[in-house]
Design a protein around this nucleic acid. Structure first.
Lengths: 244, 244
DNA sequence: GGCCCGAGATGAACACGTTCAAGTATTCGC
DNA sequence: GCGAATACTTGAACGTGTTCATCTCGGGCC
């Protein structure tokens, strides 16, 4: 019934890995649409049904890309956060690392985002299934501000990682639709908006704007609270641990 | 080859309309996945091939929903803009009208957004194909500010409709993922963010923040310019006028 | 060793969206 | 009115992702 995400035998794990690697190679060679499940199975030396024994669908195979980029990005950010010490530079470095990491997969951004946009999809950044990944991202942005001597009000400090995560999603959304060579426009977007964000954050703590900042952060907390109860209540605590 | 979006004969138009209405009814009754092209054809009293004579794909059929809501929203906004005179009230009214209009279709928001997210899709709000629709939306938001005595700098005034359109897209994105009953959370989001926007806009014209506002609007102009030349140059001026 | 049970593997079959060569009806120039 | 072009219509066939009853194999148990 449910695909075997974690094979029990060593042989099973090997087969699973072979299917995954074959599919990623074929996706790169022939694109998503150009790669059929039959071809993947044939090239991996298994039957079609066997591929479905390990992976729920063709989509879950391409989702492996997503995970891969996510992890690569986290790794790349370690060096960035080691090197940079100012808020603006850190954020800029993290965003640049993001763009560099995902660039090879721009070709698949369409299909990736297509599935990601579906509220039911585990790839969807807002869904519960992707909560672990999202938490990792938020933690990353928390690190971006933690290492700095940025002085902001407490409430904003608490909310900032989430806001930066949303900003980062917006950039990715822009990137997906960016048809310029080398994703020139997205790079420009980042280089212009990061300083702007830094400025807004600094200004947000001025007495003049304090009340507004407080209003905004209070609202965000309220919104989260509103979501918290019903969704934690009705949903069973299932965490299917979708494939890799 | 290309589907007949505008039939030449009256009979053709009738068939086309019958297919469209049947599909919308079935989508409502059985959902998108539960409605097959064979069923649509059978219920409409035509052959499968005939449906494809008028509509490029199953997706284009559901896109009719999108157009419909868009037009309904524009109509609903006439009354709102007639009634309200302040910027905040106008924006709030327009956004409320949006939520009310699209609510019946929340069930399809997943599949709709799924196709809308695809950079190739004509439904994609950023694509060239949907430029007319986007222009209509931007015009709507221009009307929102035109009727008011809002005092902002010239550059912000010019950019504001675009920014509001982006804001509105963000709200829709939130709405799609909103699982709360009656879309309570999205309503809350709008009611809280609209006043915030109004405040930011007002503050943006203060001397203290002028320079930042100018920087931001200049960047937006730059970004548009950057996009303008290459994309207008290489793309032929084709405007296929996809189905209704 | 014989047995069994479950993990692993098979490929035909299914359902679907889509295409296409071929048909029929309608319109238009003359 | 007639022929030809054009609009419209058909349903079988194709390719695809996915499912399922069935088979194979390997290791644990007596």
């Amino acid at each position: 019934m449910t695909p075997r995400a974690q094979p029990t035998t060593g042989k099973g794990a090997e087969t699973r890995a072979r299917i995954l690697e074959t599919s990623l190679r074929l996706f790169l060679e022939r694109g998503y649409e150009g790669t059929t499940m039959r071809l993947i199975a044939k090239d991996a030396g298994v039957s079609v049904g066997n591929a479905y024994y390990y992976f729920k669908s063709k989509e879950t195979l391409i989702q492996a890309f997503y995970r891969r980029t996510h992890e690569e990005h986290l790794v790349a950010c370690v060096a960035v956060l080691e090197r940079e010490k100012g808020f603006e530079d850190r954020l800029l470095g993290v965003m640049h690392a993001k763009l560099t990491t995902i660039e090879p997969y721009h070709r698949f951004s369409g299909i990736l985002f297509k599935t990601a946009a579906d509220p039911e999809s585990p790839l969807n950044p807002f869904s519960e299934a992707s909560l672990p990944t999202r938490r990792e991202s938020t933690t990353l942005f928390a690190q971006v501000i933690e290492g700095t001597k940025l002085r902001v009000t407490k409430d904003l400090w608490a909310e900032l990682p989430n806001l930066l995560w949303i900003y980062h999603m917006g950039v990715v959304l822009f990137w997906i639709h960016d048809r310029s060579e080398g994703r020139r426009r997205t790079t420009m977007l980042v280089e212009r908006t990061v300083p702007l964000i830094a400025q807004v954050v600094r200004l947000g703590s001025l007495p003049l704007l304090r009340s507004m900042t407080r209003r905004a952060t209070a609202f965000l907390a309220e919104l989260r609270e509103e979501a918290g109860l019903p969704e934690a209540g009705d949903g069973t605590q299932e965490a299917p641990l979708e494939d890799a």
